[in-house]
Amino acid sequence: MFSETVALTGRELKHWYRAKVQILMMLVQPMVWLGLFGQAFPATIPVSTMNGAPDYMSYMSVGQLAIITLFTCMFVGMSLVWDRRFGFLNKLRAAPIPRAAIPLSRVFATVIRAVVAAMLVLAIALLFAHIPGLKGLTIIGHFGITDFLGVILILVLLATAFASIFVAIALTIKQQETLFAVINLVNLPLMFASAALFPISSMPDWLQTVAKVNPLTLAVDGMRQLFFHGSTGIYSLSVDIIGLAAFSAVFITLGIVVAMRSLKEK
């Protein structure tokens, strides 16, 4: 089970780093978000609502780490749809491997890609803070190795949950066009009904309720407590992490169950 999953994960990662344009886009995208959206946004949000962030840009940068993770996970399904279309999926189905290795390898590869992407965003955000005239991520207090590992853990859990959801969706839907539509449908509400870009205290009550159970909210809430020491979050850090772990456990199980069903011979 392990060796097959590793082999297939390797294939996914090779696809990824060989697609040069894709890598370039991955770098450009956060630059655009941080550079345009973030810089131009009027800072009318009261500092007191921003989980200890010194300014909106710092607040939003942490949200960007979670959003780039969501974006990276969204596209995991595309390769599955292609693989089905070209018969690669059938080739895997005819091989003496545990079927679960097929969805698992996609999830693992996506988690690695998402974390790498988020680290790039982090580097850019930290860099922006040191360029005169630009705003970036300003860390409050000491950011040590355990804080860094905490951020990675949160991103891994978040990516696992999202990648599993999108694997399950892609295996169920099978059609490229429909898949795009569904991804778009899921993407925007997930992003905006969360604390990733705006403090939830400014949202109407019903939206707050939704945002509070959004995995994105848990992730940014946890990460902000690590980046901005002494701040209090919506939840405590341990609740954030436990919640995310629960989400990823549920969704990866769901992903595998859906995958087994969809890969089963009819």
């Binding site: 060796s3 097959e4 082999a7 297939l8 390797g10 294939r11 090779k14 696809h15 060989r18 697609a19 070209f86 018969g87 690669f88 059938n90 080739k91 895997l92 091989a95 003496p96 491997i97």
Partner: peptide
Amino acid sequence: ELTVDDELSGRENMLLQAKLY
């Protein structure tokens, strides 16, 4: 269908197959 992987080399395709089997 042709199911060999475009983005891998011939040898890498073979290696992947070897691992799966």
